[in-house]
Write a protein that binds this DNA or RNA. Structure first.
Length: 424
RNA sequence: GGAGAAAUGGCAGAGUGGUCGAAUGCACUGGUCUUGAAAACCAGCGAGGGUCACACCUCCGGGGGUUCGAAUCCCUCUUUCUCCGCCA
């Protein structure tokens, strides 16, 4: 969430930024926030004055008792009664104002970076890079879900029996290929300086709030009601929350973590076309990279992450492109996002396989993730994350693009991980 | 799951109703000394709100209560440790 001082000091910038996201009534929303904040502060000041008065009297009473002037002390006690009532009333009022203010702040998305183009939907995203050859497939080539069946490597019906739609079972070489990709991604990330972590797969409410999944995206997560925990929709949540309520030193930057985790998403309301096979699942594997950066370096860091993901896709020799998301498609918490898409030859469409974002201070503010700057002041850090990479669609692209008449040819870099060269 | 003990600043650790945002040690920062370092010595050193800056307010695991006044007393929740039970 945006910080109040930031909104106060950059009123016009904020309104303009929300405009890029096509937010209606941005101006009145921000005005309401500033008003509520003003009210909050004056109520706070009023309450503080009363508390100061009552603290003063209490100290005097203490002294009177010690010097044995009990009568005077009892007299002074009476004075505090009124103050108490008043302070109770005010602090209740203050609590309400704060709740109200927070509710408003929770509705305000991050301010887009200047590079973010205006736009309404994914149609308006900007293609900024494209690389790799789209292979000519042999006659009789098929989409990945048919390949999965043909070679018996991923079984959707079986998963359906065990759990339900969107929970496939990986078998034999399919399971091995998946594991190979995970290990390969983790190794690549480690080489690039990311420290590997294995976080919990269930998170509490505070963590969900910290990275912005709550309260706005509650319905997208699986909720374990009995313990009030949520299954993670991405490793971003537990890994970024490692740094919740942390005060860093400048010398701690940059912080680089990578984690492999399964991800769970309810995907409520996204049925219909384009959800076949591996295209959209309720449970999938992903390797994530997370960075905590000094604000001065975060955009440089974002570029590094983009370059890193590019490197992996080049090694896999998959045709891909990079999009800069427009205001209408940009995630709630992000200031700038690059999506990576792999071309699915048999489906003749692009599949999103990675999303790399800079959240600037938006998450850090909720997380209370700060550092001591040169002036000795606490300042919010910047958080970034990206997938490197999401497994199912990489797998889909790989199966489809690497299919030949004699089987699926495993990319060179993966062979030492799979232990086989071809799925046939 | 049962019984007991505990939770204080970056860490360790005092503090059991008032002058305590909190002794002391370590760590850290600056300075003196030194060719440099170490040691020694001196000084500074929790967080948030608020203010031009002060003042002032809040915070001793979370929440609630008693009291004129709570780190200190009471209730409750959470977590950690020890013992018992169960168990991958």
């Amino acid at each position: 969430m945006l910080s109040l001082p930031y909104i106060r000091e950059n009123r016009d910038l904020v309104i303009k930024g929300l405009g890029i996201r096509n937010i209606k009534d941005a101006e009145s929303l921000i005005e309401a926030v500033i008003d509520a904040d003003q009210q909050r502060r004056s109520t706070q000041a009023e309450l503080d004055a009363i508390l100061a008065e009552s603290n003063k009297i209490s100290k005097e009473i203490g002294k009177l008792f010690q010097s044995g002037e009990v009568q005077k002390a009892n007299l002074a006690k009476q004075k505090t009664g009124q103050l108490k009532d008043k302070s109770k009333e005010l602090s209740e009022q203050l609590g309400n104002l704060e709740t109200e203010l927070n509710e408003m702040l929770y509705q305000i998305p991050n301010i887009p970076n200047d590079l973010v183009p205006k736009g309404n939907s994914e149609e308006d995203n900007e293609v900024v890079f494209e690389e790799g050859n789209i292979p000519e497939l042999h006659p009789g080539s098929m989409p990945h879900w048919e390949l999965c069946k043909k070679y018996d490597i991923i079984d959707f019906e079986l998963g359906n029996k065990i759990t339900g739609a969107g929970f496939p079972v990986y078998k034999g070489k399919g399971a091995k290929l998946q594991r190979a990709l995970i290990t390969y991604f983790l190794d690549r990330n480690s080489e690039a300086g990311y420290t590997e972590v294995q976080p919990p797969l269930l998170i509490n409410e505070a963590s969900g709030l910290g990275t912005g999944q709550l309260p706005d995206k509650e319905g997208q997560m699986y909720h374990v009601g009995i313990d009030n925990l949520y299954l993670i929709p991405t490793a971003e949540v537990p890994v970024t929350n490692l740094y919740r309520d942390v005060l860093l030193k400048e010398s701690d930057f940059p912080i680089l973590n990578t984690a492999y985790t399964p991800c769970f998403r309810r995907e409520a309301g996204s049925y219909g076309a384009h959800v076949r096979g591996l295209n959209r699942l309720h449970q999938f594997d992903k390797v994530e990279i997370v960075r905590i950066e000094h604000p001065d370096n975060s955009y440089q860091a974002l570029d590094k992450m983009v370059e890193h993901v590019k490197g992996i896709l080049q090694e896999l020799k998959l045709p891909y492109r990079i999009l800069r998301l427009c205001g209408g498609d940009l995630g709630f918490t992000s200031a700038l996002t690059y999506d990576f898409e792999v071309f699915s030859t048999a489906q003749n469409r692009w599949l999103e396989i990675s999303s790399v974002s800079n959240f600037e201070t938006f998450q850090a503010n909720r997380l209370k993730l700060r550092f001591k700057n040169k002036d000795g002041k606490s300042q919010l850090a910047h958080t970034l994350n990206g997938s490197s990479l999401a497994l199912p669609r990489v797998l889909a692209g790989l199966l489809e693009n690497c299919q030949t008449e004699s089987g699926i040819v495993i990319p060179e870099v993966l062979r030492k991980y799979t232990g086989f060269d071809v799925i046939d």
